[in-house]
Amino acid sequence: MIEINIKHQIFTSSGNQFLEINEQFEEGSIIHVSGDSGIGKTTFFKIISGLIAPDSGLITVNNTVLTDTKSKTFLSPQKRDIALMFQHYALFPNMTVKKNIEFAQKKKDEEIINHLLEIFNLENLKNAVPSRLSGGQQQRVALARTLVQNARIALLDEPFSAVDPSMRKVMKEEIVKTSINEGVTFFVISHNENEFEDYTHKKLVIR
């Protein structure tokens, strides 16, 4: 079980607001995260992943405490077993497509990398650097790099915004398969309310 009870002040164009989340999520589920632009969805991801600390609150995963402001417990991002796919991809500019994906693996597995290169239609681009790729191609690399980490939790920030419908379907199917087969919990930010309609175990609307 994943328990998130946090409160954090955010600064928006319409003034200061509080991001408040008090929810429990089953491990191995897919959670669709939505809300207006600037409401704090990306900040929420940064708090879960340990990039920033909330003003107050508690985050636990299967009774392991990641953050507890009362006891001043705060695990570093490296110790959280959480993969984060940024909205702007954050690929290493001097690494090839394949090297970007390989770098993220904790335990090297060439078969998984080759599988992702093939199904995401990146095989012929595996030796290219990110600057030679389109936005959609970079997005596919970023998702592949996230999936190969085989983390307990994966946070995907608008993972399909730059790809065409056919590739969007392939990417979604791979996420669902990973959730089912590997027990990975996915939090997916998407403005498409029906993005995971057939698969989402829970919807989290941030207001």
Rank of each mutant, 00 (worst) to 15 (best):
T73D: 01
S71W: 01
G35N: 04
G183V: 11
F11I: 09
Q87F: 02
L147F: 06
F120N: 13
I113E: 13
S190L: 07
T200D: 01
P54M: 02
Y199M: 05
G15L: 07
V141T: 14
D55T: 10
E110Q: 11
E23Y: 00
P77I: 02
L133Y: 05
A53F: 00
K99F: 11
S134F: 12
V176L: 03
Q105L: 04
V170K: 15
T67N: 10
N124K: 15
V205T: 12
L19G: 03
S34N: 11
K98E: 15
I101E: 13
I6H: 02
I206W: 01
G183M: 11
D36V: 08
E195H: 09
M85C: 13
Q9I: 09
L143D: 06
N181T: 08
H191D: 10
S161P: 06
S49H: 12
I10N: 04
R132A: 14
N22G: 01
T96I: 14
R132E: 14
Q139E: 03
N94Y: 14
E110Y: 00
E110D: 13
D164S: 11
D68W: 04
K126L: 05
Q138N: 08
D68H: 04
V148R: 03
V170Q: 13
V148D: 02
V61T: 08
A151M: 09
A83N: 06
L116F: 14
F160P: 01
N124F: 10
L125N: 15
R80I: 12
Q105F: 02
T64M: 13
A104H: 07
F187I: 03
I113F: 04
H32M: 13
